[in-house]
């Protein structure tokens, strides 16, 4: 009896893994594909190997981009609106509630979580305006061993699949318009 129960649980392990992949395939296939600009940061996960650590333009959201004055806390959900602009999708607004997010025609929603409520972002002009640091769960692009550092100084873009409810999937990385690696 116990043995049968154990075998049932083992079958469940396999089913969960396969089922999970099927659900992800389904979400990615149905999601809208968009391209966004990114900056590369860094390297290695013990279980999943080398990766390129990505920082998106909408990872740091200025307080002025929020629909209403907001004082977010770490862990809060953030709804972000993205719209196409010169080939890449850019931030047009953000909100701590879905209802308050203004959406222009053609814009899409992206959902993230507040990592740091207020960080100072250095600018080339020397200024350090404040921003809310948001993570989306797509900050790592896993690559074969030794490919974690694409050539620097070139234009980096990421192709995302966005589900209707704003869940993003990182599909491909482009360096100067070519898929990487």
């Amino acid at each position: 009896m116990r043995r049968r129960l154990f075998l049932l649980f083992i079958a469940l392990h396999a089913l969960v893994l396969v089922g999970w992949v099927v659900s992800l395939e389904w979400a990615v296939a149905r999601g809208a594909t968009i391209r966004v600009a990114v900056a590369q940061r860094d390297p290695r996960d013990l279980l999943r190997g080398d990766y390129v650590w990505l920082q998106f333009a909408f990872s740091e959201i200025p307080p002025s981009a929020f629909a209403a004055p907001a004082r977010p806390n770490a862990g809060d959900r953030v709804w972000v609106a993205l719209a196409p602009h010169e080939g890449v999708w850019e931030l047009t607004g953000a909100s701590l509630t879905r209802e308050a997010l203004p959406l222009t025609p053609g814009a899409r929603i992206l959902v993230g979580r507040v990592d740091y409520p207020l960080v100072q972002v250095p600018e080339p002009t020397g200024g350090r305006p404040q921003a809310v640091h948001v993570v989306y769960g797509i900050e790592r692009y896993y690559v074969p061993e030794g490919k974690g550092t694409p050539p620097r100084g070139q234009k980096l873009e990421a192709e995302l699949a966005l589900t209707a409810d704003g869940r993003p999937f990182l599909r491909r990385l482009f360096v100067d318009g070519r898929p990487y690696p």
């Binding site: 649980f9 469940l12 999943r48 896993y142 999937f169 990182l170």
Partner: peptide, 27 residues
């Protein structure tokens, strides 16, 4: 880990561990 590598899921590492032990302990 493999599934999250294939789909570039880098959300919460805790969620992966939760799924692991919740499946493992009953077995």
């Amino acid at each position: 880990g493999l599934v999250s590598q294939i789909y570039n899921l880098s959300g919460r590492p805790a969620d992966a561990l939760l799924l692991w032990w919740v499946l493992l302990l009953p077995a």
